[in-house]
Computed example of a mutant assay.
Amino acid sequence: MDIIDLHCDVLEKLTRLEAVDFQNDNRLHANLNYLQAGKVKVQVFAIFIHPNVPQKEKFLEAARQIEAFHTKVLSKSEMVHITDWRQLDELKEGEIGAVLSLEGCDCIGEDIGKLQHLIDAGVKIVGLTWNEENTVAYGTSEAPSKGLKPFAHEVIQLLNQHDILLDVAHLNEQGFYEVLPLAKHIIASHCNARSICDHPRNLTDEQIKALVQNGGRIHVVFYPPFIEPAKETTTINELLKHIQHLTSLVGVESIGFGSDFDGMDPLAIEKLSNASEYQNLINALLNTYSIEEVQMMASKGFRNYVMGIGKREK
């Protein structure tokens, strides 16, 4: 069954590791061979800038990751750069769609022009923060009562203008609620249910329902500490508890996957430790849900969502 995965950190590894090959390097959990084996039809590649990178170098690091996206990912004939969501319906047999996202606006500082450059480079999904404070907003490691900063309104206006998906995955709670009425298109690319695992990176039931009521959707993440408290390894059955809870809250049409492969070394779910094992999750879901429901979570729900973007106004 085809998969759409909304989050991996391959690009950070492609710029950090020596002699890394996107085709088959087993240091990459979402390398090309693994994506093919797991039947991943569309993979979102995040631009993630480590907080230790000096501010003056962060935009250059973003540019380096975009260069790696072109020279190491898109250089493979199987990979197709998705710059228009309508391309999802044009992918041929054996082709994999590759989408750029920005995991936090740290690299743009206070320069809206830098965000425009990233959008021009093909970024289709943007998170306002990673875990910490930046010039736009506050992340999940900050006090939950802190809201958006003034610059956020300019950022959100630009995202709306270009129909970019705003990602709340790392946004703190007050910022989350302030974004809801402002963002034209909104998602949580890699979050789980806080009522199952009480971690600030997960969303409360109230947040999940508010997200969907405002036209958004949530994609579950495979990072063990977000599945079971303080666990370094976990199982597919534990992840299923989150999925079952989410489907009971908002239905299968609003749920998808955002693995976080390559962003959680060495932690992993047993039998779901890299993209090649994706079908193990699909088979487990088929024990509880119909094939139509699993297809909705695996790819069709997100496909339907982005195909309707031009029709949604806020």
Rank of each mutant, 00 (worst) to 15 (best):
E133K: 08
N134C: 08
N134S: 03
A137G: 09
Y138P: 01
T140V: 15
T140I: 14
S141M: 07
A143C: 04
A143Y: 04
S145V: 05
S145T: 14
K146N: 05
L148Y: 06
P150G: 03
F151Q: 09
A152F: 09
H153N: 13
E154L: 09
V155W: 02
V155P: 06
L158P: 08
L159I: 08
L159H: 13
H162T: 01
I164H: 01
L165M: 15
L166S: 07
L166C: 11
V168I: 12
V168H: 00
H170R: 00
Q174W: 07
Q174V: 02
G175A: 00
E178Q: 15
E178I: 02
V179D: 11
V179C: 15
L182M: 12
A183F: 04
K184P: 07
K184R: 15
H185F: 09
S189Y: 00
C191E: 02
N192M: 10
N192C: 00
N192F: 02
R194V: 04
I196L: 13
I196K: 14
I196Q: 13
I196W: 11
D198K: 10
D198H: 10
H199T: 10
P200D: 04
R201M: 08
T204D: 13
T204V: 10
D205H: 07
Q207G: 05
A210I: 07
L211C: 07
Q213P: 04
N214C: 10
R217E: 05
H219F: 13
V220N: 08
F222D: 13
Y223R: 03
P224R: 07
I227D: 03
E228N: 13
P229Q: 09
K231A: 15
T233L: 03
I236H: 06
N237I: 01
L239Q: 07
L239G: 02
L239R: 01
L240I: 15
